[in-house]
């Protein structure tokens, strides 16, 4: 065993990359759930975003267009969920699961011609002086723009929910849609916007995997990240900063356990392999020992005449 082989700076830099897809998908889902809608289709929207982003980036040669297309792709797929749950008032759990299955199938169809291609590289931030600083440079100033965007989205979501009127209305819709309706707020319209935002974020998260983290297109490449993002929202008690913490913890432990394995640490590999799941859950459950709870109207169908 030789821990000196693990470079802590590279470790932290790569854990931020590993955490970003989960973070993006989870923060989108958090907004959806705060509006009182449970969308289990995160995995399907992520994989759709992954292929939309990949295809457009390859065709246009621009990663930026790719990410925009990924957000649009995720949002368009979530429109299907809108149609089912907000217009046809279908069961949200079943609709969400259907969305995941549909997204997986659709993405492998769309991806037929893109197996084995290389996407255009996404430029990393390169600030003179700052990016060259030892330790701080690689950790804080030399990532791709999408990683920073993820953190900005978390901060913006937190500020919006906590300090603005729009955030208050969103939460009101999620807590008691009948009361919000009685006050004259457009419950369905607000929820539709939240679902579209969730779809766009999930799409971005998916494209982050296919354009930056791997980078390639393979069928089924999100391999369950969407489900982890869903679980993270619950364990983070629907709070944005805890989602960030949870995502970094999960991503960090995933990378750390691989590092420990490669360095030959004498901890049985089974424990290392399960550590990201166990430790993330334990930490977030301990944190959620305060009185935080789920939005009261979560998963309930809203019908204006009732």
């Amino acid at each position: 065993m030789d821990l000196s082989q693990i470079n802590p700076v590279l470790l932290i830099a790569s854990l931020m990359v590993a955490a970003t897809p989960i973070l993006l998908a989870a923060i989108g889902e958090l907004v959806v759930e705060r509006a009182g809608v449970l969308n289990l289709g995160v995995e399907g929207m992520m994989i759709t975003g992954a292929i939309c982003g990949f295809a457009v980036a390859v065709e246009s040669g621009s990663p930026l267009f790719g990410f925009v297309a990924a957000a649009v792709g995720g949002a368009v797929l979530s429109l299907l969920f809108v149609l089912l749950t907000q217009v046809a008032l279908a069961n949200q759990v079943a609709s969400g699961l259907a969305l995941t299955l549909f997204g997986l199938g659709l993405s492998s169809l769309l991806g037929q011609g893109y197996v084995g291609l290389k996407p255009p590289p996404t430029p990393r931030l390169d600030i003179p002086v700052l990016s060259d600083l030892p330790v701080v440079g690689p950790i804080l100033f030399s990532h791709d723009p999408v990683l920073y965007f993820g953190i900005v989205v978390v901060a913006a979501t937190w500020a919006l929910l906590k300090f603005t009127r729009a955030g208050l209305i969103l939460r009101a819709v999620g807590e008691n849609h009948d009361a919000a309706h009685a006050l004259g707020y457009k419950v369905v319209r607000i929820r539709v916007l939240a679902i579209l935002f969730g779809g766009a974020c999930a799409g971005l998260g998916g494209a982050y995997i296919s354009l930056i983290r791997v980078p390639q297109w393979t069928e089924g490449m999100t391999a369950g990240v969407g489900w982890i993002a869903l679980a993270l929202v619950v364990f983070a008690s629907w709070k944005p900063w805890r989602v960030l913490l949870g995502a970094y913890l999960f991503g960090g432990l995933t990378v750390l356990q691989l590092n420990l394995q490669a360095a030959g640490v004498a901890i049985p590999v089974e424990y290392l392999a399960m550590s990201p799941y166990v430790i993330t859950i334990v930490v977030l459950v301990i944190l959620s020992a305060d009185k935080s709870r789920a939005p009261a109207a979560l998963g309930r169908v809203f019908h204006a005449t009732r």
Binding site: I6, L10, A18, P21, V214, A223, V255, Q261
Partner: peptide
């Protein structure tokens, strides 16, 4: 030889992470 067990047959993101870790360790 540095050996990393991924505990999966197919998970592109994890396989890529494992490769990166091994490369970072030389």
């Amino acid at each position: 030889f540095k050996i990393v067990w991924a505990y999966t047959w197919f998970d592109p993101a994890k396989e890529a992470d494992a490769a990166k870790v091994l490369i970072e360790q030389g």
